[in-house]
Design a protein around this nucleic acid. Sequence first.
DNA 1: AACTACATGTAAGAGGTTACATGATTCA
DNA 2: TGAATCATGTAACCTCTTACATGTAGTT
Lengths: 180, 180
Amino acid sequence: MLEFIILGTLFSQNLSGYDIRKCIENGIGMFYKASYGSVYPILAKLTNKGFVTCNEDSQDGRKKKIYQITEEGRLSFMEWLQKDESQDSIEAFMARVFFFDKLPEEVSKKKIQKYEYYLEEYEESLLEQRKKYMDLPNREDYFYKISTLYFGICKLQSMIKWCRVARKKEELENLIDKDI
Amino acid sequence: MLEFIILGTLFSQNLSGYDIRKCIENGIGMFYKASYGSVYPILAKLTNKGFVTCNEDSQDGRKKKIYQITEEGRLSFMEWLQKDESQDSIEAFMARVFFFDKLPEEVSKKKIQKYEYYLEEYEESLLEQRKKYMDLPNREDYFYKISTLYFGICKLQSMIKWCRVARKKEELENLIDKDI
DNA sequence: AACTACATGTAAGAGGTTACATGATTCA
DNA sequence: TGAATCATGTAACCTCTTACATGTAGTT
């Protein structure tokens, strides 16, 4: 996964390993973490595969290794971006969506639609689970078990809502609370 | 982590490895996945440590290995449950909260409060990030980058809302949408 | 002078997953 | 009788984290 996130980060800019990590942190850092201990070895691997090339640079006094994506790298990235993601967790899916601007609009919309179906099925199964708890006599003893389930449902519902807004390319501002 | 989730699952019931996995799937499966390839080796490890004991059972015709938690196992679990979780991802935190019914009420409330502070700080930083995108001239080219950020904010806000409700032990029903 | 941020890397190992191997039982 | 589910396990591998090692450049 990180392999492709790095390729995606290098898609339209040449960066050093250090900068790649910062870029990930400030971008999809919310859904995906990358440590130096993983970034550097993967850059070496990508170089071996011919997916990136490396140029030494000492412009700002410091020596840097600036990585540049190759045509093969771009192909590999686009292949990953388009492949089936229905098994992804919400976080993994969103890490992918982060790069959806590189996809034709119909393709990205279809992908979101498909994931939305999966989420709706999942929601059904959680609402079913909820019924079991509702009939229990000593609900207080299960407060936190029930409340984690409720958070799960909440999260799914907000993701479904997000899908609908994103598919229609509607104004995103309405999604978030102004007065929390 | 899985080590403690297994101990938590065995806290008030004796189960086979197979049943433990099912139990996790139906419980915190939403936040945490466990495969057989991880459950069985961990059960062996826990047995070696003396945190669980194992009894062969062939009641329903099938041979099962029923695991039972020991006093040391309970101590180890409670220690994990009480230790600082401020570095946890939301998913990891919720997997922990799943077992909060085993904690005194004041302790669990304090833990949720503390995590809530961390989330609020995080929210600030994301709202800050949002400003950067808002000033960009060609926002359409960044639609999906912006929308993943918005989802991140959404998720945080619903988690903060959850914390407030859970801390007050308010009615959870209000959290979820009835008419999605 | 000390501290923070920049910059690159490695070694050990945690913490899993996937695929395979095996066999019993239940149900359509 | 064949498929699904129950049931336990292993071996190979993957992916990443943590901690360490090393050194430079700017900032207080």
